[in-house]
């Protein structure tokens, strides 16, 4: 204990912030791939695939990310699979983000007007051609504002990786606080850094929303 906040501490916070960004990108990439697969499964012509993917989304959206983190980090070792904090955090974020992005993207795909599907079918395009050439290019435009909005949720949710000991921004704040014990100052700085990361993305998301018609509220609390 003792000492005052100095440049080394701020450097340490800087590294933490970099890991927050890195983990967010991992979550976005992993969750994006998972979400894309889920979105396609949710609109699959196969009833069982649709039911299974809907069940997955319901399960994950009804479970806190924190519990998923604990399950992967503490639960898997009891089954004999040891995971590092980074692996546990990445896997949890992928599972969690995949469910939410999957729902967002399913909504976007389904809001491509019906005649577009029918016209593509009338042109004798195969199902994959219809998807790739007609539906997805339009769905991406609809999906962009809510996806950018959800990126803010991903960044904030990476703070929960601190509970499994992964040293990102929140955890590096806790570590510094353990030696300096100036919680209010340190957590204010941490909150400020998170704000600096998230606020620009929120602004971009809102601008995209107003440009592309009716605003959709992105939910979240994390």
């Amino acid at each position: 204990m003792g000492g005052t906040l100095n440049a080394n501490h701020l450097m340490f916070l800087g590294y933490g912030a970099l890991w927050t960004i890195g983990l967010s990108l991992i979550g976005l990439l992993g969750g994006g791939i998972a979400g894309f697969i889920i979105a396609l499964c949710r609109i699959s012509p196969n009833r069982i695939v649709r039911l299974l993917s809907a069940g997955y989304v319901q399960l994950i959206q009804g479970t806190p990310l924190l519990v998923i983190m604990f399950l992967t980090y503490f639960g898997l070792p009891t089954l004999g699979v040891t995971v590092s904090p980074l692996t546990a955090a990445s896997a949890s974020l992928t599972i969690y983000v995949g469910a939410y992005l999957g729902e967002i993207w399913r909504g976007s795909i389904e809001s491509v007007p019906r005649p577009q599907w029918e016209a593509a079918e009338g042109l004798a395009l195969s199902r994959s051609q219809r998807m790739m050439k007609v539906i997805l290019p339009q769905a991406i435009r609809i999906a962009t504002p809510p996806t950018v909005g959800f990126m803010v949720q991903i960044i904030k949710n990476t703070s929960l990786a601190s509970v499994v000991g992964f040293v990102e921004l929140a955890r590096s704040g806790q570590i510094i606080n353990n030696s300096l014990f100036e919680p209010f100052l340190i957590y204010t700085i941490i909150a400020g850094i998170y704000f600096a990361l998230c606020y620009p993305i929120s602004r971009i998301s809102r601008r995209l929303e107003t440009r592309s018609g009716p605003a959709r509220l992105s939910l979240g609390t994390a």
């Binding site: 803010v152 904030k156 703070s159 601190s162 919680p183 957590y187 204010t188 909150a191 979240g220 994390a222």
Partner: peptide
């Protein structure tokens, strides 16, 4: 809306 709940909880707790 642009900060994590975890940090908010710590701020309220220590604040």
């Amino acid at each position: 809306r642009n900060t994590p709940l975890l940090v908010q909880i710590f701020l309220v707790y220590f604040g």
